[in-house]
Design a protein around this nucleic acid. Structure first.
Lengths: 216, 216
DNA sequence: ATGAACGAGATTGGATACAATCAATCCATG
DNA sequence: CATGGATTGATTGTATCCAATCTCGTTCAT
Protein backbone atom coordinates (compact mmCIF):
# COMPACT_ATOMS: atom_id res chain seq x y z
CA UNK A 1 0.00 0.00 0.00
CA UNK A 2 2.17 2.83 1.24
CA UNK A 3 5.52 2.70 -0.45
CA UNK A 4 8.53 1.98 1.68
CA UNK A 5 11.73 3.07 0.03
CA UNK A 6 14.16 1.57 2.51
CA UNK A 7 14.14 -1.40 4.81
CA UNK A 8 14.85 0.76 7.82
CA UNK A 9 11.72 2.80 7.17
CA UNK A 10 9.66 -0.34 6.88
CA UNK A 11 11.17 -1.79 10.01
CA UNK A 12 10.50 1.46 11.84
CA UNK A 13 6.81 1.23 11.05
CA UNK A 14 6.71 -2.42 12.05
CA UNK A 15 8.41 -1.63 15.32
CA UNK A 16 5.95 1.09 16.15
CA UNK A 17 3.00 -1.21 15.67
CA UNK A 18 4.71 -4.05 17.51
CA UNK A 19 5.27 -1.79 20.48
CA UNK A 20 1.78 -0.34 20.36
CA UNK A 21 0.26 -3.78 20.09
CA UNK A 22 2.26 -4.92 23.07
CA UNK A 23 4.03 -7.62 21.11
CA UNK A 24 7.12 -5.88 22.35
CA UNK A 25 6.21 -5.31 25.94
CA UNK A 26 7.53 -2.58 28.23
CA UNK A 27 10.92 -3.34 29.69
CA UNK A 28 11.48 -6.19 27.28
CA UNK A 29 14.77 -6.43 25.51
CA UNK A 30 14.71 -6.11 21.75
CA UNK A 31 16.81 -9.06 20.69
CA UNK A 32 18.14 -7.91 17.38
CA UNK A 33 18.99 -11.23 15.83
CA UNK A 34 15.65 -12.92 16.26
CA UNK A 35 13.60 -9.81 15.56
CA UNK A 36 15.53 -9.01 12.40
CA UNK A 37 15.01 -12.56 11.24
CA UNK A 38 11.30 -12.42 11.92
CA UNK A 39 11.06 -9.19 9.97
CA UNK A 40 13.02 -10.65 7.12
CA UNK A 41 15.88 -8.16 7.20
CA UNK A 42 19.37 -8.06 8.60
CA UNK A 43 20.29 -6.37 11.84
CA UNK A 44 21.68 -3.23 10.20
CA UNK A 45 18.41 -1.57 9.19
CA UNK A 46 16.84 -2.76 12.42
CA UNK A 47 19.52 -1.03 14.44
CA UNK A 48 19.06 2.19 12.55
CA UNK A 49 15.32 2.08 13.16
CA UNK A 50 16.00 1.48 16.84
CA UNK A 51 18.19 4.56 16.95
CA UNK A 52 15.26 6.59 15.71
CA UNK A 53 13.01 5.15 18.37
CA UNK A 54 15.68 5.85 20.96
CA UNK A 55 15.63 9.49 19.92
CA UNK A 56 11.91 9.52 20.46
CA UNK A 57 12.21 7.88 23.84
CA UNK A 58 10.32 4.80 22.72
CA UNK A 59 13.20 2.52 23.55
CA UNK A 60 16.12 2.85 25.90
CA UNK A 61 19.62 1.99 24.85
CA UNK A 62 22.31 0.55 27.06
CA UNK A 63 25.66 0.19 25.29
CA UNK A 64 26.74 -3.40 24.91
CA UNK A 65 23.48 -4.53 26.44
CA UNK A 66 20.95 -3.54 23.85
CA UNK A 67 17.65 -1.78 23.35
CA UNK A 68 14.78 -2.15 25.77
CA UNK A 69 11.21 -1.07 25.21
CA UNK A 70 10.45 1.95 27.33
CA UNK A 71 7.39 1.58 29.40
CA UNK A 72 4.72 4.11 28.58
CA UNK A 73 2.91 4.52 31.84
CA UNK A 74 -0.05 6.80 32.23
CA UNK A 75 2.34 9.25 33.86
CA UNK A 76 4.47 9.21 30.73
CA UNK A 77 1.42 9.68 28.58
CA UNK A 78 0.37 12.71 30.57
CA UNK A 79 3.84 14.09 30.16
CA UNK A 80 3.78 13.56 26.40
CA UNK A 81 0.49 15.38 26.15
CA UNK A 82 1.71 18.20 28.35
CA UNK A 83 4.69 18.63 26.08
CA UNK A 84 2.45 18.51 23.07
CA UNK A 85 0.33 21.27 24.48
CA UNK A 86 3.35 23.48 25.08
CA UNK A 87 4.54 22.99 21.53
CA UNK A 88 1.22 22.96 19.72
CA UNK A 89 -0.02 26.06 21.48
CA UNK A 90 3.03 27.89 20.26
CA UNK A 91 2.59 26.64 16.71
CA UNK A 92 -0.98 27.90 16.64
CA UNK A 93 -0.15 31.14 18.39
CA UNK A 94 2.41 31.92 15.72
CA UNK A 95 0.73 30.30 12.77
CA UNK A 96 -2.94 31.19 12.97
CA UNK A 97 -2.43 34.93 12.42
CA UNK A 98 -0.35 34.09 9.35
CA UNK A 99 -3.00 31.98 7.65
CA UNK A 100 -3.90 33.12 4.16
CA UNK A 101 -7.25 32.53 2.55
CA UNK A 102 -5.61 29.95 0.33
CA UNK A 103 -4.32 28.16 3.43
CA UNK A 104 -7.85 28.04 4.82
CA UNK A 105 -9.21 26.57 1.62
CA UNK A 106 -6.50 23.98 1.66
CA UNK A 107 -7.18 23.13 5.28
CA UNK A 108 -10.87 22.74 4.55
CA UNK A 109 -9.97 20.31 1.80
CA UNK A 110 -7.97 18.27 4.28
CA UNK A 111 -10.87 18.22 6.70
CA UNK A 112 -13.05 16.91 3.92
CA UNK A 113 -10.51 14.19 3.30
CA UNK A 114 -10.86 13.15 6.90
CA UNK A 115 -14.62 13.09 6.61
CA UNK A 116 -14.51 10.98 3.48
CA UNK A 117 -12.16 8.53 5.15
CA UNK A 118 -14.41 8.46 8.21
CA UNK A 119 -17.43 7.58 6.09
CA UNK A 120 -15.64 4.65 4.58
CA UNK A 121 -14.58 3.56 8.06
CA UNK A 122 -10.99 3.20 6.96
CA UNK A 123 -9.07 3.68 10.19
CA UNK A 124 -5.69 3.99 8.54
CA UNK A 125 -6.96 6.60 6.12
CA UNK A 126 -8.59 8.56 8.92
CA UNK A 127 -5.38 8.51 10.92
CA UNK A 128 -3.24 9.78 8.10
CA UNK A 129 -5.76 12.36 6.87
CA UNK A 130 -6.24 13.65 10.39
CA UNK A 131 -2.51 13.91 10.74
CA UNK A 132 -2.19 15.81 7.49
CA UNK A 133 -4.75 18.33 8.58
CA UNK A 134 -3.21 19.05 11.94
CA UNK A 135 0.31 19.27 10.60
CA UNK A 136 -0.67 21.51 7.74
CA UNK A 137 -2.01 23.78 10.42
CA UNK A 138 1.11 23.52 12.56
CA UNK A 139 3.29 24.24 9.59
CA UNK A 140 1.68 27.59 9.10
CA UNK A 141 3.90 28.68 11.97
CA UNK A 142 6.92 28.51 9.68
CA UNK A 143 8.83 26.90 12.53
CA UNK A 144 10.14 23.66 11.07
CA UNK A 145 12.03 22.58 14.17
CA UNK A 146 9.00 23.11 16.32
CA UNK A 147 6.89 21.09 13.90
CA UNK A 148 9.46 18.33 13.93
CA UNK A 149 9.27 18.11 17.70
CA UNK A 150 5.51 17.96 17.62
CA UNK A 151 5.75 15.20 15.05
CA UNK A 152 8.05 13.29 17.41
CA UNK A 153 5.50 13.53 20.17
CA UNK A 154 2.74 12.31 17.90
CA UNK A 155 4.89 9.42 16.80
CA UNK A 156 5.43 8.45 20.40
CA UNK A 157 1.73 7.66 20.77
CA UNK A 158 0.57 7.43 17.18
CA UNK A 159 0.30 3.70 17.10
CA UNK A 160 -2.14 3.78 19.99
CA UNK A 161 -4.30 6.37 18.36
CA UNK A 162 -5.85 3.99 15.88
CA UNK A 163 -7.99 2.67 18.68
CA UNK A 164 -9.52 6.06 19.16
CA UNK A 165 -10.58 6.26 15.55
CA UNK A 166 -12.15 2.83 15.59
CA UNK A 167 -15.30 4.00 17.34
CA UNK A 168 -17.80 5.82 15.13
CA UNK A 169 -18.92 8.16 17.91
CA UNK A 170 -15.36 9.38 18.29
CA UNK A 171 -15.23 10.00 14.56
CA UNK A 172 -18.34 12.15 14.68
CA UNK A 173 -16.99 14.18 17.51
CA UNK A 174 -13.69 14.62 15.73
CA UNK A 175 -15.38 15.92 12.63
CA UNK A 176 -17.41 18.39 14.64
CA UNK A 177 -14.26 19.59 16.33
CA UNK A 178 -12.50 20.00 13.02
CA UNK A 179 -15.32 22.14 11.71
CA UNK A 180 -15.31 24.25 14.85
CA UNK A 181 -11.58 24.63 14.49
CA UNK A 182 -11.96 25.77 10.91
CA UNK A 183 -14.41 28.44 11.98
CA UNK A 184 -11.99 29.68 14.61
CA UNK A 185 -9.21 29.73 12.06
CA UNK A 186 -11.27 31.74 9.60
CA UNK A 187 -11.83 34.27 12.34
CA UNK A 188 -8.09 34.19 13.07
CA UNK A 189 -9.12 33.60 16.65
CA UNK A 190 -5.88 32.36 18.17
CA UNK A 191 -7.11 31.64 21.66
CA UNK A 192 -10.20 29.85 20.46
CA UNK A 193 -8.23 27.64 18.14
CA UNK A 194 -5.77 26.82 20.90
CA UNK A 195 -8.63 25.88 23.17
CA UNK A 196 -10.17 23.66 20.51
CA UNK A 197 -6.87 21.96 19.82
CA UNK A 198 -6.52 21.34 23.55
CA UNK A 199 -9.96 19.78 23.74
CA UNK A 200 -9.08 17.61 20.78
CA UNK A 201 -6.02 16.33 22.63
CA UNK A 202 -7.88 15.69 25.84
CA UNK A 203 -10.33 13.42 24.09
CA UNK A 204 -7.69 11.08 22.88
CA UNK A 205 -5.55 11.12 26.00
CA UNK A 206 -8.31 9.50 28.01
CA UNK A 207 -8.88 6.81 25.42
CA UNK A 208 -5.22 6.02 25.04
CA UNK A 209 -4.57 6.05 28.77
CA UNK A 210 -7.29 3.48 29.26
CA UNK A 211 -5.74 1.41 26.56
CA UNK A 212 -2.29 1.33 28.08
CA UNK A 213 -3.42 0.98 31.68
CA UNK A 214 -5.19 -2.30 31.04
CA UNK A 215 -2.79 -5.05 30.01
CA UNK A 216 -3.97 -6.43 26.72
CA UNK B 1 39.88 12.01 28.80
CA UNK B 2 36.22 11.16 28.77
CA UNK B 3 35.72 7.48 28.14
CA UNK B 4 33.95 6.46 24.99
CA UNK B 5 32.44 3.02 25.23
CA UNK B 6 31.36 2.62 21.64
CA UNK B 7 32.60 3.90 18.33
CA UNK B 8 29.23 5.40 17.51
CA UNK B 9 29.35 7.54 20.64
CA UNK B 10 32.83 8.74 19.76
CA UNK B 11 31.83 9.45 16.19
CA UNK B 12 28.80 11.35 17.43
CA UNK B 13 30.97 13.68 19.46
CA UNK B 14 33.37 14.14 16.57
CA UNK B 15 30.51 14.96 14.26
CA UNK B 16 29.14 17.58 16.60
CA UNK B 17 32.43 19.38 16.78
CA UNK B 18 33.03 19.04 13.05
CA UNK B 19 29.67 20.65 12.38
CA UNK B 20 30.16 23.36 14.96
CA UNK B 21 33.62 24.14 13.64
CA UNK B 22 32.24 24.40 10.15
CA UNK B 23 34.41 21.60 8.85
CA UNK B 24 31.14 20.12 7.78
CA UNK B 25 29.47 23.15 6.30
CA UNK B 26 25.73 23.78 6.03
CA UNK B 27 24.12 22.04 3.09
CA UNK B 28 27.16 19.90 2.53
CA UNK B 29 26.68 16.21 1.98
CA UNK B 30 28.18 13.88 4.52
CA UNK B 31 29.98 11.37 2.34
CA UNK B 32 30.01 8.33 4.53
CA UNK B 33 32.87 6.47 3.00
CA UNK B 34 35.48 9.19 3.17
CA UNK B 35 34.33 10.55 6.52
CA UNK B 36 34.30 7.12 8.12
CA UNK B 37 37.80 6.53 6.81
CA UNK B 38 39.05 9.84 8.16
CA UNK B 39 37.56 9.02 11.55
CA UNK B 40 39.12 5.59 11.50
CA UNK B 41 35.89 3.62 11.71
CA UNK B 42 33.62 1.84 9.31
CA UNK B 43 30.38 3.28 7.98
CA UNK B 44 28.17 1.37 10.39
CA UNK B 45 28.82 3.38 13.56
CA UNK B 46 28.93 6.55 11.49
CA UNK B 47 25.47 5.90 10.12
CA UNK B 48 24.09 5.27 13.58
CA UNK B 49 25.55 8.53 14.82
CA UNK B 50 24.02 10.30 11.83
CA UNK B 51 20.63 8.87 12.72
CA UNK B 52 20.93 10.49 16.13
CA UNK B 53 21.82 13.81 14.59
CA UNK B 54 18.93 13.46 12.21
CA UNK B 55 16.62 13.08 15.17
CA UNK B 56 18.00 16.30 16.56
CA UNK B 57 17.59 18.10 13.28
CA UNK B 58 21.32 18.63 12.89
CA UNK B 59 21.41 16.78 9.59
CA UNK B 60 18.77 16.07 7.01
CA UNK B 61 18.35 12.64 5.52
CA UNK B 62 17.24 11.88 1.99
CA UNK B 63 16.84 8.16 1.34
CA UNK B 64 19.29 6.84 -1.20
CA UNK B 65 20.91 10.25 -1.39
CA UNK B 66 22.45 10.62 2.01
CA UNK B 67 22.79 12.94 4.95
CA UNK B 68 23.25 16.67 4.53
CA UNK B 69 24.29 19.13 7.19
CA UNK B 70 21.34 21.27 8.13
CA UNK B 71 22.06 24.91 7.93
CA UNK B 72 21.68 26.69 11.22
CA UNK B 73 20.71 30.17 10.19
CA UNK B 74 20.06 32.91 12.70
CA UNK B 75 16.37 32.25 12.10
CA UNK B 76 16.89 28.64 13.11
CA UNK B 77 18.83 29.70 16.15
CA UNK B 78 16.02 31.97 17.26
CA UNK B 79 13.64 29.10 16.80
CA UNK B 80 15.79 26.77 18.88
CA UNK B 81 15.91 29.29 21.68
CA UNK B 82 12.19 29.91 21.48
CA UNK B 83 11.60 26.18 21.82
CA UNK B 84 14.04 26.06 24.69
CA UNK B 85 12.17 28.76 26.48
CA UNK B 86 8.88 26.90 26.11
CA UNK B 87 10.35 23.74 27.51
CA UNK B 88 12.64 25.18 30.15
CA UNK B 89 9.97 27.46 31.53
CA UNK B 90 7.78 24.42 32.05
CA UNK B 91 10.57 22.48 33.71
CA UNK B 92 11.16 25.29 36.17
CA UNK B 93 7.50 25.95 36.73
CA UNK B 94 6.99 22.34 37.73
CA UNK B 95 10.35 21.71 39.33
CA UNK B 96 11.14 24.75 41.45
CA UNK B 97 8.28 24.23 43.90
CA UNK B 98 9.42 20.66 44.37
CA UNK B 99 13.01 21.51 45.33
CA UNK B 100 14.09 20.12 48.66
CA UNK B 101 16.75 21.67 50.85
CA UNK B 102 19.05 18.86 49.87
CA UNK B 103 18.47 19.67 46.21
CA UNK B 104 19.47 23.27 46.87
CA UNK B 105 22.65 22.25 48.58
CA UNK B 106 23.48 19.97 45.71
CA UNK B 107 22.78 22.72 43.19
CA UNK B 108 25.01 25.12 45.09
CA UNK B 109 27.76 22.55 44.89
CA UNK B 110 27.34 22.40 41.14
CA UNK B 111 27.53 26.16 40.90
CA UNK B 112 30.77 26.03 42.83
CA UNK B 113 32.06 23.48 40.36
CA UNK B 114 31.36 25.94 37.57
CA UNK B 115 33.18 28.68 39.45
CA UNK B 116 36.19 26.50 40.05
CA UNK B 117 36.31 25.55 36.39
CA UNK B 118 35.95 29.20 35.43
CA UNK B 119 38.90 30.18 37.61
CA UNK B 120 41.10 27.63 35.92
CA UNK B 121 39.89 28.91 32.54
CA UNK B 122 39.11 25.39 31.39
CA UNK B 123 36.44 25.96 28.75
CA UNK B 124 35.48 22.30 28.46
CA UNK B 125 35.12 21.97 32.21
CA UNK B 126 33.01 25.11 32.39
CA UNK B 127 30.75 23.86 29.65
CA UNK B 128 30.12 20.51 31.25
CA UNK B 129 29.77 21.89 34.78
CA UNK B 130 27.36 24.55 33.60
CA UNK B 131 25.38 21.88 31.84
CA UNK B 132 25.27 19.71 34.93
CA UNK B 133 23.93 22.57 37.00
CA UNK B 134 21.15 23.50 34.61
CA UNK B 135 20.07 19.94 34.00
CA UNK B 136 20.07 19.07 37.65
CA UNK B 137 17.66 21.93 37.97
CA UNK B 138 15.52 20.82 35.05
CA UNK B 139 15.39 17.30 36.39
CA UNK B 140 13.72 18.49 39.54
CA UNK B 141 10.58 18.62 37.39
CA UNK B 142 10.46 14.83 37.36
CA UNK B 143 9.58 15.03 33.67
CA UNK B 144 12.18 12.87 31.97
CA UNK B 145 10.81 13.28 28.47
CA UNK B 146 10.72 17.01 28.82
CA UNK B 147 14.30 17.01 30.06
CA UNK B 148 15.32 14.84 27.14
CA UNK B 149 13.86 17.34 24.70
CA UNK B 150 15.63 20.21 26.38
CA UNK B 151 18.83 18.25 26.17
CA UNK B 152 18.27 17.81 22.44
CA UNK B 153 17.91 21.53 22.00
CA UNK B 154 21.09 22.18 23.94
CA UNK B 155 22.90 19.63 21.84
CA UNK B 156 21.78 21.41 18.71
CA UNK B 157 23.84 24.44 19.70
CA UNK B 158 26.14 23.09 22.34
CA UNK B 159 29.21 23.00 20.19
CA UNK B 160 28.89 26.70 19.51
CA UNK B 161 28.58 27.55 23.14
CA UNK B 162 32.22 27.06 23.90
CA UNK B 163 32.90 30.39 22.28
CA UNK B 164 30.72 32.09 24.80
CA UNK B 165 32.67 30.67 27.68
CA UNK B 166 35.99 31.69 26.23
CA UNK B 167 35.65 35.33 27.30
CA UNK B 168 36.30 36.01 30.96
CA UNK B 169 33.71 38.76 31.18
CA UNK B 170 31.02 36.30 30.08
CA UNK B 171 32.19 33.91 32.76
CA UNK B 172 31.82 36.55 35.45
CA UNK B 173 28.36 37.41 34.31
CA UNK B 174 27.40 33.75 34.20
CA UNK B 175 28.54 33.22 37.76
CA UNK B 176 26.60 36.22 38.96
CA UNK B 177 23.53 34.89 37.21
CA UNK B 178 23.97 31.49 38.76
CA UNK B 179 24.12 33.02 42.22
CA UNK B 180 21.04 35.11 41.52
CA UNK B 181 19.30 32.00 40.31
CA UNK B 182 20.21 30.13 43.46
CA UNK B 183 18.71 32.89 45.57
CA UNK B 184 15.49 32.74 43.59
CA UNK B 185 15.42 28.97 43.97
CA UNK B 186 15.89 29.18 47.72
CA UNK B 187 12.90 31.49 47.82
CA UNK B 188 11.02 29.01 45.60
CA UNK B 189 10.26 32.02 43.45
CA UNK B 190 9.13 30.37 40.23
CA UNK B 191 8.62 33.48 38.13
CA UNK B 192 11.90 35.02 39.18
CA UNK B 193 13.83 31.88 38.36
CA UNK B 194 12.15 31.62 34.98
CA UNK B 195 13.06 35.22 34.26
CA UNK B 196 16.67 34.61 35.25
CA UNK B 197 16.89 31.49 33.14
CA UNK B 198 15.51 33.51 30.22
CA UNK B 199 18.13 36.20 30.69
CA UNK B 200 20.78 33.53 30.81
CA UNK B 201 19.60 32.21 27.44
CA UNK B 202 19.43 35.63 25.86
CA UNK B 203 23.06 36.30 26.67
CA UNK B 204 24.29 33.32 24.79
CA UNK B 205 21.93 33.62 21.86
CA UNK B 206 23.44 36.89 20.82
CA UNK B 207 26.97 35.57 21.03
CA UNK B 208 26.16 32.42 19.12
CA UNK B 209 24.17 34.23 16.48
CA UNK B 210 27.10 36.52 15.79
CA UNK B 211 29.28 33.47 15.50
CA UNK B 212 27.15 31.73 12.91
CA UNK B 213 26.26 34.84 10.93
CA UNK B 214 29.84 35.61 10.09
CA UNK B 215 31.45 32.92 7.94
CA UNK B 216 34.57 31.76 9.72
C1' DA C 1 27.14 -19.64 53.77
C1' DT C 2 29.30 -15.95 51.22
C1' DG C 3 31.50 -13.89 47.67
C1' DA C 4 35.12 -13.51 44.26
C1' DA C 5 37.09 -15.56 40.02
C1' DC C 6 36.28 -17.98 36.03
C1' DG C 7 34.23 -19.72 31.72
C1' DA C 8 30.49 -20.89 28.32
C1' DG C 9 26.82 -19.16 25.78
C1' DA C 10 24.29 -15.42 24.14
C1' DT C 11 24.12 -10.86 22.38
C1' DT C 12 25.76 -6.67 20.75
C1' DG C 13 29.43 -3.74 18.11
C1' DG C 14 31.84 -3.08 14.02
C1' DA C 15 34.25 -4.30 9.48
C1' DT C 16 33.88 -5.91 5.04
C1' DA C 17 31.58 -7.21 0.82
C1' DC C 18 28.00 -6.87 -2.27
C1' DA C 19 23.48 -5.06 -4.18
C1' DA C 20 20.53 -1.12 -5.21
C1' DT C 21 20.00 3.46 -6.38
C1' DC C 22 21.13 7.94 -7.95
C1' DA C 23 23.33 11.67 -10.63
C1' DA C 24 25.88 13.19 -14.37
C1' DT C 25 27.57 12.43 -18.84
C1' DC C 26 27.40 10.99 -23.41
C1' DC C 27 25.21 9.82 -27.46
C1' DA C 28 21.43 9.24 -30.61
C1' DT C 29 17.47 11.30 -32.52
C1' DG C 30 14.16 14.70 -33.83
C1' DC D 1 20.31 22.87 -31.12
C1' DA D 2 17.28 20.79 -27.85
C1' DT D 3 15.59 16.50 -25.87
C1' DG D 4 15.33 11.99 -24.23
C1' DG D 5 17.36 7.74 -23.05
C1' DA D 6 21.10 4.55 -22.03
C1' DT D 7 25.53 4.16 -19.46
C1' DT D 8 29.00 4.68 -16.10
C1' DG D 9 30.90 6.15 -11.78
C1' DA D 10 29.90 7.40 -7.23
C1' DT D 11 27.28 6.75 -3.16
C1' DT D 12 24.09 4.74 -0.26
C1' DG D 13 21.53 0.43 1.61
C1' DT D 14 21.85 -4.14 3.36
C1' DA D 15 23.72 -8.77 4.38
C1' DT D 16 27.13 -11.45 6.35
C1' DC D 17 30.99 -12.39 9.16
C1' DC D 18 33.99 -11.84 13.03
C1' DA D 19 35.41 -9.46 17.38
C1' DA D 20 34.18 -7.52 21.82
C1' DT D 21 31.34 -7.53 25.70
C1' DC D 22 27.96 -8.90 28.82
C1' DT D 23 25.14 -12.31 31.56
C1' DC D 24 24.71 -15.99 34.27
C1' DG D 25 25.81 -20.16 36.28
C1' DT D 26 29.66 -22.74 38.37
C1' DT D 27 33.56 -23.39 41.07
C1' DC D 28 36.57 -22.50 44.54
C1' DA D 29 38.55 -20.24 48.51
C1' DT D 30 37.54 -18.05 52.75
Amino acid sequence: MTEVVTAQAGVLRELRTLIAAGKLGPGQQVVQDSLAASLGVSRVPLREALKVLEGEGQVIYHPHRGYFVADLSVTDLVEVYRIRSLLEDEALRVGVPLLTDEDLEYLEGLIQDVEVAAKSADVTAVTSANRRFHFALFESSNMPRLVRLIRNQWDATDAYRGVYFAAASNLDQMNREHRAMLAALRARDVEKSIALQAAHRENSVSVVSELISKPS
